[in-house]
Write a protein that binds this DNA or RNA. Sequence first.
DNA 1: ACAAGGGTTGTTACCGATATCAGCGGAAGC
DNA 2: GCTTCCGCTGATATCGGTAACAACCCTTGT
Lengths: 344, 344
Amino acid sequence: MEEERSSRRRTGGIRMRDVAERAGVSTMTVSRALSEPAKVSQEMRERVIRAVEEVGYLPNLLARSLSSSRSTTVGLIVPSIDNSIYTQTLKGLSVVLRSRGFQLMIAESGYDPSEEEDLVAAFLTQRVSGLVLHNIEHTDRARALIRQAGVPVVENGNLPPEPLDMAVSYSNREAAKAMTLHLGRLGYRKIAFASLFAHNNDRSRDRIEGYRAALTELGQTPDPRLIVETSRGLASGAEAVVRVVQAVPEVDAFFCAGDVLAVGALFECQKRGWVVPRRIAIASFDDVDLLRHVSPAVTTLRLPRYGIGERTAQMLLGRILDDAEYLRGSVVDLKFEIIQRESA
Amino acid sequence: MEEERSSRRRTGGIRMRDVAERAGVSTMTVSRALSEPAKVSQEMRERVIRAVEEVGYLPNLLARSLSSSRSTTVGLIVPSIDNSIYTQTLKGLSVVLRSRGFQLMIAESGYDPSEEEDLVAAFLTQRVSGLVLHNIEHTDRARALIRQAGVPVVENGNLPPEPLDMAVSYSNREAAKAMTLHLGRLGYRKIAFASLFAHNNDRSRDRIEGYRAALTELGQTPDPRLIVETSRGLASGAEAVVRVVQAVPEVDAFFCAGDVLAVGALFECQKRGWVVPRRIAIASFDDVDLLRHVSPAVTTLRLPRYGIGERTAQMLLGRILDDAEYLRGSVVDLKFEIIQRESA
DNA sequence: ACAAGGGTTGTTACCGATATCAGCGGAAGC
DNA sequence: GCTTCCGCTGATATCGGTAACAACCCTTGT
């Protein structure tokens, strides 16, 4: 005559105890059979597996994580979730994490450091076992929270001078510099640069800096009229061309800090009947399929988006699962590549 | 002389008990002050809040969820994470969920129903309190798992004839049909259709069906040579044009089942010196910025991508937080819109 | 034959929170 | 004045697992 002695009504489904009773063993044996099969005899393992299937048991990861103080989720914070540049990195992360049974939680900060801070807190509250941040700039409290929680973190939008923990990226500064130098070597003298808004965006700022550094190296003094800040989108690229041309009609090259901007710029030039690259060269940041298929095909930088995600996940897992303390402080530079095509 | 009586070493950070001791109250008062402030006196509330800040307490959501059998995470499964069509929906979901303190977990099934099943199990194991699926086709076990878990689900890639629970989408069939009819009314007679692979893809299949239905309504017999199945990407769009033109040179309209395909097709036509829409019309599925800015601007379907995410999240939250049982079984059709431009 | 030790399994005490119900003081009702 | 009720707080059991250690069986060494 079994009686429910608990005053608290059970809500959930089948528990480990049910499996244990069915298999005629203790819950510890079930737990071990599922989590550390090597510690259990062949026979027990099979009996447990069978019981699991018979009763349709799904482990409760909340309970497991709470008890073992170890979770299988990783949090990702990007500035803006609907920006296509993150999808490749996201894919790389997802593939590697999933292969080891980890889940990815994603959120967007809207380029707002204080929102990033809130999200860090929210993720820590969820007890993620790792964090991925796109920014390399963080509020003091965000840094403190992360340090206090002792959670491994990878920054991956840029190479941070002082990494929070680990970092995987390419150098925005060096990439912008390399392309600008490349244009200079090709003979272009009046190289304009269309930047995305640099407010709360370390990537944009570094790109501008790289551009400036290259000009200096080319023996030029950066001309502020050749630098325009704009938002994302095709229309912005077009508008950027208009603004620069108005200020400096003799501009002969246009380097855009984003693929979409470059396409917008290209369309605008074509609308004006300007032959690219004869009248004006165009170069882009970040390779996408589109840039290879427009005419003329656009010279651009290939960034290791997928690899960043992949490597980020590997390092995080190394720290979480294999306790690879030697990874702490690693800053991995995955490099970029200039793709020379017809537009410059 | 306090002594650690537990044999198990504590790993975590500051617990609710620490806050309670600091504030000189019981953990229940802390718990209530944080989760149900109305049930606690003004004074206690303030004392607790102060103690929380002083000791730097972050609640443990794993423990909360386990104890209350209520979680604040929602799982999203998409066929392919690096497809840009999901970003708007993802954004809509994210914004609404976050506003109510929920986190989004995301995973990709790779168009594989059995992988979807595994992911459903993985998410249920994580005790998500809601699921969002892009597919409307699922394995029997996936359906069973979901039913057994009693978790609210929204399907949102298509309108399902038999919803698992709730659905928010537009009708792929009706959209394809509407555009095809539109082209027919504009006077085009030989309308080709470029489809994405239909294997394990209900959306693709419904689009083809809609196209067929429209032709029938136009008094034509669908010509299999005018339907090509292809993969994603600009190159595929171009190649699709090549294949159709070879088989049916007199084709006068080309309806593509995806924005990227349409651009690829447009480029190919221009490469061949064909005037669009004079020689051949082009129409696309799904609106993106690019289609408005190419020349000629491409006639397309505007799909309620963001709204789907938003509404999906609202319905899920309704079920989870407000116990809105009346939502069960709802299928919301958010409609589409034909954007008439120059290419057709 | 007996102690030592490895491999398995079970018992018990937690992980960090919340549900439930009891207790307590003061206002309201008669 | 005394009972009733309400608002607030706390004690205790529990959510579904795992850590740590004890217990047991059997093999091995001497």
